[in-house]
Design a protein around this nucleic acid. Structure first.
Lengths: 240, 240
DNA sequence: GAGGGCATCGGGGAATCCTGTATTGACAAA
DNA sequence: TTTGTCAATACAGGATTCCCCGATGCCCTC
């Protein structure tokens, strides 16, 4: 209901002004990540904090939705790259059902790739796993307070973008793809065929063909094999 | 799914678990991962075990080498995807300097991509982050005992390869392709379609289709998109 | 000289690619 | 409020490719 709108100035993040929290009631946190070891780490990390308590975990989108309904967490930490339903899609589903539920994205991917998409989908913040743990807890307290958290660098970039209206060089041609198209591109890069992608996303084969055509057009790729090559290379960036 | 205690009670001691290590001296572990949050998780996880103790952490390859020299760990856990020097390269460097230092690879990438390369580089085991934490501790105990740890699936695959295949010296499956097939594979990897390859080589489309079918069969690839993905990756990073 | 691998073609049916068109819903501008 | 734009979904139909067959030479080896 309230996606990030660049028109209203968000305050730049300052780690030192963490809001005072009532110590008598710990905030209940849901963790969504498909790596049990990472979940384990987050559980230990948060349970050692005085004002947080992990109340549920989920390894995929379906279990995440069920966990929200059941455990009634105060906020959620979700990873972008889940097996099965995409993390972005999960956020959209969550926000559609619980518009005020705050979600913090915790991803290993660079914020320039997914942060704006995540915020548009309804997330309240984005933290990279490369960051120090204090950034994570700080971000959690911030979004629990109804604010939005992104890194200073990204906040600056987004405000600049909001001021200039548009412009600012597009770092990657993939940025102009829609969420769905990006999802399809990634599956193509994983070696999935059209039919398989349709089954993965529970969509018509014709729909996937449309997405592929749009991807081809937006990326100025002439043929399907060229697009597959691009997708494979795109997916492999970050894996070496 | 119990909402509060996610996994099995791993913090509880298992008295019957292989006393392969005297419990009075905990094994000192080095953790190499460029995600502080993941490191934090591993620290908590291992320090809760009775027979492990994290003695050093490193976020990149340079610090990892320094930490081994300084903290004298008994074994190391390293991630494949580090910023700066590759995890594989790091393993090669470690083994070159300390040939008996056991390294366990902990990666989010599928074992089919990197496990064999990591083992060839000198690692003693490979565990995916998708696995349960018990797999990690089990693998650590195993390699600490001088053995090698890989998943059952991969172990079976490698055994089969070693037995009925002559693949002991024949590491690259591409080697069994004929010259023509290799030529076609490279063009596929460059993003060329069947028709375009036929024109490139002045051959019938049917001939190219035949070559593609043979390539698929020889490389044990199930579908055409998988083959294209393989070809792109193979062309991109030269020999495997 | 009989296989066996290789390279070259073809048929035919299924799946796909490609180029359009269309509907719905969300959202921003007018 | 209405209008315009665009993302997402889906379909049609013709071109192309995929995939299962088989076939023909050619070279090499045993």
């Amino acid at each position: 209901m309230e996606p990030f709108s660049p028109g209203k100035p968000i305050s730049v993040t300052h780690p030192m002004l963490a809001p005072m929290k009532p110590l008598d009631t710990k905030a209940k946190v849901l963790i969504v990540d498909d790596h049990p070891i990472v979940r384990q780490g987050l559980v230990q990390l948060l349970n050692c904090e005085p004002d947080f308590m992990v109340c549920a975990e989920a390894g995929n989108a379906r279990k995440a939705m069920a966990a929200i309904a059941e455990a009634k967490p105060d906020l959620g930490i979700v990873d972008i790259t889940l097996q099965g339903t995409n993390g972005i899609e999960l956020i959209k589903n969550i926000v559609a059902q619980w518009p005020d539920f705050p979600v913090l994205v915790l991803s290993m991917h660079d914020e320039s790739l997914y942060a704006e998409r995540a915020l548009r989908a309804g997330a309240k913040g984005y933290v990279m796993k490369q960051e120090a743990p204090e950034k994570l807890t700080g971000a959690l307290r911030r979004i629990l307070n109804g604010q939005i958290y992104v890194s200073e660098k990204l906040a600056d970039k987004m405000m600049r973008k909001a001021i200039d209206g548009k412009a600012l060089q597009d770092t990657s041609p993939v940025a102009i793809l829609s969420d769905r198209e990006l999802e399809v591109l990634q599956l193509i890069g994983q070696g999935h065929g059209t039919r398989q992608i349709a089954e993965d996303l529970n969509l018509s084969v014709k729909t996937i063909e449309s997405h592929r055509a749009h991807i081809k057009e937006k990326l100025n790729l002439k043929t399907a094999p060229e697009m597959v090559r691009f997708a494979v290379q795109w997916v492999n960036q970050g894996a070496l």
